[in-house]
């Protein structure tokens, strides 16, 4: 396990921020495609929307990074709190018949992990600029958390996955 607290330069921080959003976009797109393939169009749409948010944030990070030389980090060199990026979620929480509210809960867990990641950097980085920047990012992620919580509250809170009336298919 690595330490977000050790992120010490602005370039290193932005490399993390960009990767976080990029991985988030890639994962949501992958999930949306999978849901499309498996005819869960509503959840596919939600994941697509989450990917769109991620893309916007990635552009913001790119803007902040303009002119600076960001380090190239290998996937295992990132200082996430866990081995994986905060917004890639957990495959174990995915089901092809998951309900929209479950999809939102999946997204919520991602946003919370992001918020906590930035929070750790904001409070522990040895670099003042990084702490300030991370603070802003924490704020933003916290807003996402609130927003998602509001959406979840508005949604029908059904989290039981319906029975599939068809048996699975044998393919090859």
């Amino acid at each position: 396990m690595t330490n977000p607290q050790e992120i010490a330069t602005k370039a290193e921080f932005l490399a993390h921020a960009f990767a976080l959003e990029q991985e988030s976009v890639d994962r949501y797109e992958e999930l949306a495609d999978a849901m499309d393939t498996h005819n869960n169009l509503e959840v596919a749409g939600l994941f697509r929307k989450m990917a769109e948010f991620g893309r916007k944030h990635a552009v913001e990070v790119e803007r902040l990074a303009a002119g600076s030389d960001l380090p190239t980090l290998e996937p295992w060199d990132f200082k996430w709190a866990d081995d994986e990026g905060p917004e890639t979620g957990d495959y174990a929480d995915i089901d092809y018949m998951m309900t929209p509210v479950q999809a939102l809960q999946f997204a919520l867990a991602n946003e919370k992990r992001s918020r906590d990641f930035y929070g750790l950097v904001a409070s522990h980085s040895p670099n003042q600029t990084v702490r300030e920047l991370a603070g802003e990012f924490t704020q933003e992620e916290a807003e996402h958390v609130t927003l998602l919580e509001r959406w979840i509250a508005r949604h029908d809170s059904d989290t039981t996955i319906a029975d599939d009336l068809d048996p699975p298919n044998i393919v090859d």
Partner: peptide
């Protein structure tokens, strides 16, 4: 753009969509 000329994992993916169950 400092970020867009990197070699990305995505560059190694095709446009064929997996048939795998979501969550696999």
């Amino acid at each position: 753009n400092p970020l867009s000329d990197k070699i990305e994992p995505k560059d190694y993916k095709s446009d064929v969509k997996p048939v795998w169950c979501p969550g696999c």
